[in-house]
Design a protein around this nucleic acid. Structure first.
Length: 321
DNA sequence: GAGATTTGACCCGT
DNA sequence: ACGGGTCAAATCTC
């Protein structure tokens, strides 16, 4: 049991909490194995969806335990041995290289208790384990991002924008990305992704289930039956659109990214700048139109392949990241 | 009112 | 000391 290796300086109640988390995690593992063996014995189609949901549920619970343990250990400056215990080889692995905030307010280095004192609250990110993409348009990767910072970078013409996964707090997803315009003419954007998404995009998931019952010819994941005007009001699209709106306002030159009705076409859905990302999203989901018809984005092709092969973030990550 | 963005301050690595 | 990454209060948007 890992709990026996906890250092003595941990307060006993904290140690008991960790012990309980470890116990919960181990029990969940047993449940996972049980679900898995049941799945192997029930291979008919009617049970497949339920089995998949069961597995997702178990993995989410397991992930919560693992992440909680990681946070607790990190808050005491422990090496992250708990997080490195694989919960599942293909799901929810915690990226140790991603900066992780410590919620600890009792750190030994703390000398004052002012709200502003955040010493020890984060670690600088290592340069490793990042994926860089350079695109002529701001592309969507299928995830909801929330901007949390912007910095002027030395010797850089344009500021760097910092995004974290929207589900950082509700699902503990540690994925972040940086987006920076590096050229204006033609526009070129560099996106650097750090960490892996451990969140589940529930809206996308539910849409997948819906689409599996009402196949339309070209879309693996289809929003195509929603009129374009209604897409703005659709919960997914409205939240997505608002989540990236500012990104475009910040990064695109103010003059050249507003509506160009002449350039709109039936399939490409060319839209105002913040909707340009929506365009890519729609395109990716349809698996047929890429970034307004741009044919030079091989990385985007990879995204489409991933979406077509389906199964949300994990599969996308395997291809894109 | 909830959630997203802005932006100055803070913290850490070099 | 400086540059870059993140926090969090204030502000904005829907």
């Amino acid at each position: 049991m890992e709990s026996s290796s906890w250092p003595d300086h941990l307060p006993s109640d904290r140690r008991r909490a960790i012990d309980e988390l470890v116990k919960g995690r181990d029990l969940t593992r047993q449940l996972r194995d049980l679900v898995h063996s049941n799945n192997n014995n029930n291979n008919n189609n009617t049970n497949a969806a339920v089995s998949s949901l069961n597995q997702d549920l178990v993995l989410n619970i397991l992930n919560s335990f693992t992440n909680s343990l990681s946070i607790l250990k990190r808050s005491y400056g422990e090496s992250d041995e708990v997080s490195q215990v694989p919960t599942d080889p293909t799901h929810f692995t915690w990226d140790a290289d991603v900066a992780v905030k410590s919620e600890d307010s009792e750190g030994s280095s703390k000398t004052t208790s002012t709200i502003k004192d955040r010493r020890g609250c984060y670690k600088r990110r290592k340069c490793s384990d990042s994926i860089t993409k350079e695109t002529s348009t701001l592309t969507d990767d299928g995830h909801a991002w929330r901007k949390y910072g912007q910095k002027v970078i030395l010797n850089a013409k344009y500021p760097r924008n910092y995004f974290r996964c929207t589900h950082k707090h509700d699902q503990g997803c540690q994925a972040t990305k940086q987006v920076q315009q590096i050229e204006e003419n033609p526009p070129l954007y560099r996106s650097i992704y750090y960490g892996h998404h451990t969140c589940k995009n529930l809206l996308k998931a539910s849409q997948l289930l819906l689409d599996s019952t009402s196949k339309d010819q070209s879309s693996m994941i289809s929003f195509g039956n929603i009129p374009i005007a209604d897409k703005q009001n659709h919960p997914f699209f409205s939240s997505f659109s608002s989540s990236v709106k500012q990104e475009y306002r910040d990064e695109l030159p103010p003059s050249d990214h507003h509506n160009d009705p002449s350039s709109s076409s039936d399939h490409h859905y060319l839209l105002p700048p913040h909707d340009d990302q929506l365009t890519t999203l729609l395109s990716s989901d349809h698996g047929e139109v890429i970034s307004g018809g741009n044919s030079s984005c091989s990385s985007l092709d990879m995204e489409v392949i991933a979406v077509e092969s389906v199964n949300f973030e994990d599969d996308i990550l395997q291809y894109v990241f």
